[in-house]
């Protein structure tokens, strides 16, 4: 088996003094797709944000290694340049900043970090256009402000477009499926599958299993009340869909 791409060990996190994650451990290897599921307020988004380096979260115990390196010691932009991508649940609008401009700056930051030269403007545009077709995004969105006036579905597809352009080694997708209609879900699923390869890994954070119909995970974890209380395969997601989370929460409470 290959060395883990992401190794989370006993991660404890507090927000404003309140513990939110109570010791999360997770191992993701290259080539794998993991789904982290769980009820609202279970700490799923916190986990994604802590891994991406957002401020406002205090890590009180545990460690995270990304490709063998201490991830928590890195600045958010260093994590991104090392190949970690976070697809946001609520992509923020940045008025006046051209969507293509941000994308190109992001790609060049990643290329420079790998010791490569900046991408040729013409090559960039061709590449982005091809990926926009995969994501069925109107080309007009390229020249609009970042997420400015985008519909909910356009914002989510734009996140996946960015992911496809940046080709991260690890993509954390925070509720990318929320607010999408069935057709858009299919497009997003296809986009994520395009990225799947033996060198890359994807962690899907989601409420529902419906995205998993399109992107079949290798492992499914249930995160509840700040702990991973059960891990399994695809079947676990289907069982959650049928039975909800309560039976698991009760079982976990009985053990505790």
């Amino acid at each position: 088996m290959s060395a883990p791409l992401l190794q989370v060990d006993g991660l404890r996190v507090s927000v404003a003094g309140t513990p939110v994650l109570h010791g999360v451990s997770l191992t993701v290897r290259a080539g794998e797709v993991h789904a982290i599921m769980g009820p609202n307020g279970s700490g799923k988004s916190t986990l994604a944000h802590v891994l991406a380096g957002r401020s406002g979260y205090a890590v009180t115990a545990g460690s995270v290694r990304f490709d063998g390196v201490d991830l928590l010691a890195m600045a958010p932009e260093e994590r991104a340049r090392a190949g970690l991508f976070l697809g946001f649940q609520y992509p923020v609008e940045i008025p006046g900043v051209n969507n293509a401009y941000l994308l190109k700056a992001a790609l060049n930051a990643r290329r420079r970090a790998r010791g490569e030269s900046e991408i040729d403007a013409f090559d960039f545009l061709n590449m982005v256009r091809a990926k926009m077709r995969v994501m069925q995004i109107d080309e007009a969105l390229l020249t609009r402000g970042v997420n400015e006036g985008f519909s909910g579905g356009e914002k989510k597809r734009n996140e996946i477009l960015q992911m496809l352009v940046l080709e991260p080694r690890l993509a954390l997708l925070d509720e990318t499926d929320s607010g999408l209609d069935i057709d858009a879900l299919k497009v997003v699923g296809r986009g994520i599958n395009t990225l799947r390869s033996p060198e890359r890994a994807v962690v899907l954070v989601t409420h529902y299993q419906r995205l998993l119909d399109h992107v079949v995970p290798d492992q499914v974890h249930v995160l509840a009340r700040g702990r991973i209380i059960k891990s399994g395969d695809r079947e676990l997601a289907l069982e959650l869909e049928r039975r909800g989370y309560d039976w698991l929460l009760e079982a976990a409470a009985a053990v505790a």
């Binding site: 991104a80 946001f88 940045i94 006046g96 900043v97 930051a109 402000g145």
Partner: peptide, 23 residues
């Protein structure tokens, strides 16, 4: 954070956001 998560340094991120504001 959005810009930093895409790999831009803080200073570059600020410049980009300010330029957008002035566009």
């Amino acid at each position: 954070f959005y810009c930093q998560q895409r790999g831009l340094g803080q200073e570059d991120a600020v410049n980009m956001i300010v330029s957008g504001f002035c566009r």
